[in-house]
Design a protein around this nucleic acid. Structure first.
Length: 487
RNA sequence: CGGGGUAUAGCGCAGCUUGGCUAGCGCGCCUGCCUUGGGAGCAGGAGGCCGCAGGUUCGAAUCCUGCUACCCCGACCA
């Protein structure tokens, strides 16, 4: 019996975080592996998370003047070639269609890794005058990147994402757009996903292929690693040049547009799991959880009838009030159901048994804290809604304080960084993030990576403190950036 | 793409060293009884191209050769 329940338990996060993650997402039925290498199936609960992410972002995109469109998945090879850095960056991971209808194609077609090129091509047709600007489009799409090493949600050969592509008359407006969208990502992550993000600028080595400047939001996972959860790029006139996107300005001069692009992907689902999950499994924030409340009846069949009468009433009331509620009336034992729904991440559980019926109450159990309380059935809807809001906030607060407490700002040299990592590893603790000064030299950045496997995450807009010296060479720091192991 | 490992029921594994009769175990699944406030119990049952191809042998899950897939560790990435 012990062996049986041991087998049902997930690997503990502290024992093997990666194994925990892979087990958790499968046991919660968020995904399954596809027959094709590096590809996954989004099962209904996983896909519904994505749908809720889409809904939340669409609302924000539209409120800021963007419209959705859809461009083809197949990109002619010649298009890819038009921006030099772009093709160099993506070439190693492109799948190609070389044959169709039993005949070899005249020109190879890439499965898009992103759509700057084909959208740039169309923009050059659509944009003639300053009156056509700004052009603010977004598309929801699948993209392909043939990665060497894949990990469900975080890095797969095919993934779903959203890519915004905008064109502007001048640099200032394009840069403003780049920041606006980065802000939207961070705000969305905080309020809907309950995940605090650090906004900042990527270093040149981490920049998007073809961008002038790349900005990112980065989140800290429960194992202390950083996850780049979204990016926003100021592309300057690079793509305008490659695709000849010109407009006639008020002054009757022909000018190149300034473009931006920005995206988040199904990687966000991985972030949800890795930020909020625990040894019991996945834990989802109420705003995105497919099921917010699971109701479980208690009691033997003899007693069940009078329980069910109340039970059905509560269920109907919650549903009526717009709560995403599910009842589990299967004949599994209550204990089994408790574990099962906790593993799937449902934020709140409502138990109703014979004892509760007698006293007109029910038991509520929070997924985030495990706290168990009783509540009167008289105002149960209001109570549930209040609790869901509390859980949402608490999950954010907890993730934030986790990040803060594992962010280290007092490390000033590579030697100290090594010492820090060694000490944490020896203590069985996570190394977390390290705030470091940087002189701006690529070699100094590369050395950190070589020696301790920490990479620069971003140059945060509001660092806790400014660092005065480069962590590698000790010379005056020009930038202060976050270093961390990253996914 | 380099180094290591694995491939047997839906999942996790045993069997292989030393070839042999009907390939086994736990979980899950189905049926019935019973049970219900933290992963219940009993009884019965279904489920297999032993990764693929070839070879050795009277006989191969087991030995040999080749292939493929997946996993872990390193260099590239939303």
């Amino acid at each position: 019996m012990t062996g049986m329940s041991e087998q049902r338990k997930l690997t503990a996060q502290s024992e093997d975080f990666s194994a925990w993650y892979l087990e958790a997402i499968q046991r919660a039925e968020l995904m399954d592996y596809a027959p094709v290498r590096g590809c996954i199936i989004f099962r209904p609960d996983g896909y519904e998370l994505w749908e809720r992410i889409q809904a939340g972002l669409n609302e924000r995109f539209k409120a800021t003047g963007h419209r959705n469109a859809y461009f083809p998945m197949l990109i002619p090879e010649s298009f890819m070639q038009k921006e030099k850095e772009h093709i160099e960056g993506f070439n190693p991971e492109l799948p190609w269609v070389t044959e169709a209808g039993g005949e070899k194609l005249e020109e190879r077609l890439a499965l898009r890794p992103t759509s700057e090129t084909i959208i740039g091509h169309m923009y050059s047709k659509w944009i003639q005058s300053y009156r056509d600007l700004p052009m603010l489009l977004n598309q929801w799409a699948n993209v392909f990147r043939w990665e060497k090493r894949t990990l469900p949600f975080l890095r797969t050969s095919e993934f779903l994402w959203q890519e915004g592509h905008t064109a502007h008359a001048d640099e200032a407006e394009a840069r403003e757009e780049t920041m606006r969208m980065l802000d939207i990502y961070a705000e969305f992550a905080a309020t809907e996903m309950a995940v605090p993000m650090v906004k900042g600028q990527k270093t040149p080595s981490e920049r998007f292929a073809g961008a002038v400047d790349t900005y990112s939001i980065e989140g800290m996972m429960r194992d202390g690693k950083a996850l780049q959860a979204g990016t926003s790029h100021y592309l300057g006139q690079n793509f305008a040049q490659g695709f000849d996107i010109k407009f006639l300005d008020r002054d009757n001069q022909l000018k190149l547009v300034h473009t931006t692009s920005w995206g988040v992907s199904t990687r966000l689902i991985g972030a949800l799991v890795m930020v909020h999950g625990d040894d019991k499994g996945v834990a989802l924030p109420p705003k995105l959880a497919p099921t917010q409340v699971v109701m479980i009846p208690i009691g033997s069949p003899k007693l069940r009838e009078r329980v069910m009468e109340k039970f059905d009433g509560v269920f109907a009331a919650l549903k009526e009030a717009g709560v995403r509620v599910k009842s589990d009336v299967s004949d599994a034992t209550p204990g089994f159901k408790f574990n099962e729904w906790e593993m799937r991440g449902v934020p709140l559980r409502l138990e109703l048994g014979p004892r509760d019926v007698d006293s007109n109450q029910c038991v509520l159990v929070r997924r985030d804290t495990g706290e168990k309380t009783t509540a009167s059935l008289d105002n149960i809807v209001a109570r549930v809604k209040l609790l869901l809001d509390e859980i949402q906030l608490n999950m954010y607060q907890r993730a934030l304080s986790f990040r803060v407490s594992h962010s280290h700002t007092h490390i000033n040299s590579l030697a100290e960084l090594k010492e820090h990592i060694a000490a944490k590893e020896a203590a069985g603790e996570i190394a977390g993030w390290v705030l470091a000064g940087w002189c701006g030299d690529d070699d100094c950045e590369a050395r950190v990576k070589e020696e301790v496997k920490f990479t620069s995450r971003n140059i945060p807009f509001g660092p806790p403190t400014e660092k005065s010296h480069c962590v590698t060479c000790g010379q005056a720091a020009v930038f202060t950036l976050w270093l961390a192991r990253a996914y």
